[in-house]
Amino acid sequence: MLTYILRRLGLAALITILAVTLLFLIIHMIPGDPVSTMLGPKASPELRAALEARMGLDKPLPVQIGLFFANMLRGDLGMDVFTNRPVTTIVLGQIPYTLVLILSSILWSAVLGIALGCYSAVNRNSLGDRLAGVLSVSVIAVPAFVVSLYSLLIFAVKLQWFPAIGAGEPGAWGDQFHHLILPSLAIGLSWVGYIARLVRASMLEVMGEGHVRTARAFGLPERWITYRYALRLAILPTVTVIGVGMGFLLSAAVFTEIVFSRPGLGKLVIDSITTRNYPVVMGSVLFSTLIFVASTTLADIINAILDPRIRAGK
């Protein structure tokens, strides 16, 4: 188990390095440079050179990348071009909002989706199963920003059950929770359908396997067979999909944060891209990458805990 985790972490580090390098190159290919953005087109050559030197833009690209990694390891992602605050501080200030949003969305949608999927598989072709199927497919088809807009209009503007904008007062848990519900609903809704379909399909597959027949032939209680023997196997693909789906969740979070004017990584990225605030763009995208790599790694480790064959590399 330990070797598996170490191997998987090594792989995660490698992926991070590659992704960051790629990111660095892509950002450098975007037309327009931060120096003219900050100083305006009429700035004197001396001033431009001074700022370029301060940001390290005068050095060759490989050196820039190397420096970036060295600084990154020290937690230094450069300075915000406008406010002169450390990028790390800015990004770390926003990340909790996004993480809470994403994790709460995936949590409720996974719990509901798995329950629905199990129900559908156990009561296959019943009215409930068919109903769940139709509902699942329809919510899968609706993008998060559409749910955001409509839920905002209906529940926040019309019915006024929930607040429309922001993330709530800092420190006031109840208020923050209240602010979290609609955005979380928007992001999680299509995942409920997706996970329900996925769990139903893999449950049906597992329930047809030989070992389930064996368990029945030994008279084990049906509930035991469903939840201890079958679900544990049927959940494996779902864990992987959620881990990889973190990318989609992050992009759904971007839209949702904008619709609800919620602080978070999404808003930060959009704001800094439109102002060509490179260090902040770089910093926030870097953290998104880290979140993505961490979630896929975590998914793999959870699967390895659930399935001994993965641990053994079989």
């Binding site: 030989g210 064996t214 032939a217 030994f218 008279g219 084990l220 196997l233």
Partner: peptide, 24 residues
């Protein structure tokens, strides 16, 4: 019926690779 299965009547199935739960 369930009370009989695995107590009074037992089964051995054809495919040994499929007979046991792989994760327990």
């Amino acid at each position: 019926m369930r009370a009989l299965r695995g107590t009074e009547i037992s089964m051995v199935f054809q495919d040994p690779m499929q007979t046991h739960n792989p994760v327990l």
